[in-house]
Nucleic acid binder design. Structure first.
Lengths: 232, 232
DNA sequence: AAGTGGTCTAGACCACAAA
DNA sequence: TTGTGGTCTAGACCACTTG
């Protein structure tokens, strides 16, 4: 016989079991990789892969020379994908519709956004406003400031949304993301076809390519919209 | 001299550069690991680590025998941590306060929740309602159904919130997470000290240990609350 | 100074999916 | 059947931290 072959996944599973059953209690120092490798009968590389994965998942904290400790508060994460809105609507089983409301080549950027994008006073950007429809019902209002230096001025967004064009064409290196609730004012109520004062979910994103701003967008979803995901 | 040593991070960076400058355009098949290893002058393992990382980040799609392709729509993700609310409030620079509003050992679970938790009709769970304060201002209302089989009935939540106790004491294996906006009704307005009809951000979570339900919680945040994070 | 995790190597075998 | 990624090994050196 040769080897039963110990997989890093099995080492990970066993280590996780020890953490969860308090065999390795929160805050405790666990044996170092070489010891565990001997115990599991595998190479240290395999143990390393398993523990590294548990550390990424928030169960362990590792430091050179300091060793590996069980996290005091295991951090669980929920992740949202920066999706193409069309895909989101289609995944919900609706027919996608899109309507461009306005597209101004150069508009003054409001002060709060200037700060978020690190722009000088009086900076101008292209401003686009559009609505995404699920069937005939307004689903999401897209209100976007776009860096004109990064997008051909001839590029139209009357058929393909700026959302979709950007996801496909402009790589981003970093960004910020904020979620809030807002009451519909008269304008929003008209554009989303809902009652004034309705509670709406709002997503604000700003994205950059290195230190160069790409876009700042506000997505306001219709009433009743839920953003769902699984916990890893 | 021996070797400059090629790191997997440098391979990753170079591959990412080729993707972003369209040297490897979206949808294209890129060279296989062995070729890249020769080109970069490193072991295949190193290339594997780099490309695996780019695949996890959403830039590449890999299939055995199929090879590695550049993703058509690079998927960027925003991650929220399942935080202890106290930490969230303290990180915002406020003094944390907590008030237990009610704690019923056995209450009928409403039908929609029963479905989400896979519970039988007439199922009962412990029901807890509490408010988290930032200074003197209500910050978040916690309304929670808790599986009594997993928590000692003697466990009080009048000082330490169920939120914090659970994060520290009950490991979860999976869960679901939903975000929505809701208008404050009379009860919410009273408990959060806001106007009736104010738009509030709501988080609903259900968590399980294997197939056993742990808890279902609704967190309703005060008006103006923003949930923020960075895009990876 | 010394201990621990982080990484690289060269080689091997396996698992999956396409041809 | 065959090509490609997925993983394991044994050994080595390095980098960061703590004592």
């Amino acid at each position: 016989m040769s080897k039963p072959a110990v997989s890093w996944q099995s080492v990970r599973a066993d280590a996780l079991r020890r953490i969860q059953c308090r065999d390795w209690p929160p805050g405790a120092l666990i044996p170092h990789e070489a010891d565990l490798a001997r115990e599991f009968g595998c190479a240290r590389t395999t143990v390393n892969r398993a523990l590294r994965d548990l550390a990424e998942a928030g169960y362990l904290e590792r430091k050179r020379k300091g060793g590996t400790r069980v996290a005091l508060t295991p951090v669980r994460k929920a992740t949202f994908e920066i999706a193409i809105i069309r895909h989101d609507i289609e995944a919900r089983g609706h027919v996608y519709g899109y309507k461009l409301l306005s597209d101004q080549p150069a508009a003054l950027v409001p002060a709060p956004l200037r700060g978020a994008l690190s722009l000088p006073p009086l900076a101008q950007m292209r401003y686009i406003c559009a609505v995404h429809l699920a069937g005939d019902v307004p689903f999401c209002l897209e209100s976007r400031w776009l860096n004109p230096a990064l997008v051909d001025a001839d590029q139209r967004f009357d058929t393909l949304s700026a959302n979709e064009w950007l996801v496909r064409n402009l790589p981003l290196s970093r960004g910020a993301f904020a979620l809030s609730a807002i009451a519909a004012d008269a304008g929003l109520a008209a554009q989303l076809g809902c009652a004034q004062g309705a509670a709406l979910l709002r997503v604000e994103r700003t994205t950059f390519q290195d230190s160069q701003p790409i876009t700042a967008v506000t997505l306001t979803y219709g009433p009743g919209f839920q953003m769902q995901t699984d916990i890893a």
